[in-house]
Simulated scan of single mutants.
Amino acid sequence: MKKVLCVVFLMFMGFQSQAQVKNDVQKKAVELIKMTSGQQFDIILEPIVKMMPEENREAFKKEMMTSLEDIYTKLAQVYIEEFTEAEIDEILAFYQTPVGEKMRAITPELTRKGMEIGQQWGQELQPIMMKYMQQ
């Protein structure tokens, strides 16, 4: 009976340990996503917030931020599937270097400029699209 209890206990501890490791990796992946994409979400969501009546914006932003946590968790799973824990650690370490910190600092501006370029390109494509749609 003692042997059975020991085996069950060891199995439980193994499952508990695996769950803790996965949880640690998930926390790191969420940290990485927030570090690299959090500002981009802010930029993307900014026009949506501006569509809200001014008196509702703060409440909307608060609720929206709560739902964003779910997105971070889901995205973390994608990162975990693509990167090992060691790779996530290395990426996090990079973003703590001076160049990584600069990259994080200028990412919002890069995103804004990229969106402007993309919108302009989309407008330039319209005549080309019309040309081929009419054939």
Rank of each mutant, 00 (worst) to 15 (best):
K102R: 11
L68M: 11
M64G: 00
T97Y: 12
K74M: 06
K50H: 01
K62E: 10
R57I: 04
M52E: 08
M103F: 10
K102T: 13
E85T: 05
T97P: 14
Y72F: 09
F60L: 11
R112I: 09
M65G: 11
E109R: 08
V49Y: 06
V49L: 05
Y72C: 07
P108N: 05
M103P: 03
Q96T: 12
F94D: 01
V99F: 04
E58I: 04
A93T: 12
K113I: 14
F83Y: 15
I91A: 11
L110R: 02
E54C: 05
M51R: 06
E63F: 03
M51L: 10
G100A: 05
Q96I: 01
E63P: 00
T73Y: 01
E55D: 05
E87L: 04
E54G: 14
E101Y: 13
Q96K: 15
F94V: 02
Y72R: 08
V99H: 12
R57Y: 03
E90M: 02
T97L: 08
E85R: 11
A93N: 10
L92Y: 11
S67I: 02
L92N: 13
T111P: 02
E87W: 06
M65P: 00
P53E: 10
K102G: 08
L92T: 11
R57K: 10
L75W: 01
K50E: 01
E58M: 05
E54V: 15
T111I: 12
P108M: 03
P108S: 07
A76P: 00
L110F: 05
Y72N: 08
E109G: 03
K74T: 06
A59F: 12
I91R: 15
K61T: 10
K102M: 10
L68F: 02
M51P: 00
V49S: 06
I106C: 04
R112C: 01
R57T: 04
E63G: 08
G114V: 07
I88D: 13
K74C: 00
R104E: 03
M52V: 07
L92E: 12
E63H: 06
F94C: 02
L75N: 09
K102F: 10
T111D: 02
F60R: 12
L68S: 00
V49C: 01
N56R: 12
E55V: 08
T84G: 12
P53F: 06
P98H: 05
